[in-house]
Amino acid sequence: MVKVTIDDQVIEVEPGTTILNAARQIGGDIVPPAMCYYSKLPGTGGKCRTCLVEVVQGSEKDPRPMPKLMVSCSTTVQDGMVVRNKTSERVQKNRAGVVEFLLINHPLDCPICDQAGECHLQDLGFENGGAGTRYEEERRTFAPRDIGNKIKLHMNRCILCYRCVHVAKQLTDQRVHGVLNRGEHAEISTYIENAIENDFSGNMIDVCPVGALTDKTFRFKSRVWFLKPLNASCSCNKCSGKAVVWMFGDEIYRVTARKDAYGEVEEQDGKAGWICNDCRFDKKDVHNWQIEGPRVINRHSVISQGHYLSPRQHDQKKIK
């Protein structure tokens, strides 16, 4: 076990753990935000630069500080490492710059976007971003297009985190989409608009940190804060069948996987709880699902506006 200090909090973790995961083991607001890293998808991380932290002491043996800010999602801890995240002004300033960069080409169409209310870029911008932008040039624009018949791609909103590409590579048997072109022109694409017909392709909607990939069956139907999220399960032979149904009255408006505090799918029976496309897109009837109870959403989230849970319900499910 190696000892690491993050924002003056000490924790002992397995060797080979990344700084980000060590911080997540401590929990709370010292956890660096991550837009591209997704713990359930090996190979992600290192692209968005939002999780940069300052390492003021490399290790017990070599206490020199690391000269540049380190990517906490792919830097492994060393014994005696001292990391500063919230307490470092340099990190905060840098993160504000990263947010500004991520928002350079973002259309800021939150009032239209279906992701609004559960968007990681919104949270990141709210916590770390400035009020204005210094960017004066034209933003890159792409027309919205369909990836398969159930997923809509708004390339304008994409921050190129590559999470969805990893979903296509790791969850589906053959990869049919990736990133084409370079730099400013880079875009997510199914090669020559091949439709994705794979049982798990819908998970790229869940992993997308912004509203670039959205559910076409839910497109513009409602806003997330008008819906009531309920834990539900069904018998499915393709996936775990454990999902969240988002209800409006007696109607199921959409189905998503169960996500934890970091927006990643929760583990079900020791495996990542990805859900299949049948559960996500086709089972919109209440009779398909066994309702387990209300999903506890952080009470500071806009989604929990107007939803009231009794203190007992709060105790039963620990708020994450």
């Binding site: 939150c110 009032p111 513009f220 139907k221 008008f226 107007g306």
Partner: peptide, 22 residues
């Protein structure tokens, strides 16, 4: 109006309802 729903969520009396369309 783009039916973003912010007025409805801000409304303390829950007087506003809307349905969006593309």
């Amino acid at each position: 109006c783009t039916a973003c729903g912010l007025c409805a969520v801000a409304c303390p009396a829950e007087a506003i309802t809307m349905v969006a369309a593309e």
